[in-house]
Simulated scan of single mutants.
Amino acid sequence: MERNIIETAMRILGIETSCDDTGISIYDDKAGILANHLYSQVKTHSDYGGIVPELASRDHIRKTIPLIQAALKEAKLTGQDLDGVAYTAGPGLVGSLLVGASIGKSLAFAWDLPAIPVHHMEGHLLAPMLEDNSPHFPCVALLVSGGHTQLIAVTSIGRYQLLGESLDDAAGESFDKIAQLLGLGYPGGAMLSKIAQQGKKGRFFFPRPMIDRPDLNFSFSGLKTFAANTIRDHQADNQTRADIALAFEEAVVDTLTIKCKRALEQTGFKYLIIAGGVADNLQLRTNLAVMMENRGGKAFFPRSEFCTDNGAMIAYAGMVRLKHGINLNLIISVRPRWPLEDLPKL
Rank of each mutant, 00 (worst) to 15 (best):
A263L: 08
E265M: 03
L284T: 03
G268Y: 09
K298H: 14
Q266E: 10
V290E: 15
K270Y: 11
A279G: 07
A299Q: 03
G276E: 02
Q283L: 02
A299S: 13
N281Q: 13
G296W: 01
Q283R: 15
F269Y: 15
N287I: 00
L272F: 05
Q283G: 08
N281F: 00
G297I: 14
K298P: 11
L282Q: 15
A289D: 13
A275H: 03
L264Q: 05
D280E: 15
K298M: 13
L272S: 03
N287F: 00
V278L: 05
T267S: 09
F301T: 09
G277Y: 08
L288P: 11
I273Q: 04
F300K: 12
A299L: 01
A299H: 00
K270E: 14
E265V: 13
G296Y: 01
G276V: 08
Q266L: 12
A289R: 15
N294C: 10
R303S: 08
R303Y: 05
S304F: 04
K298A: 14
M291R: 09
G268K: 04
L282I: 11
N281T: 09
A289P: 04
F301P: 14
Q266F: 07
Q266K: 12
A275Y: 01
A299V: 00
A299N: 08
G296N: 05
F300N: 11
A289C: 06
L284E: 12
K298N: 14
A289G: 12
F301C: 10
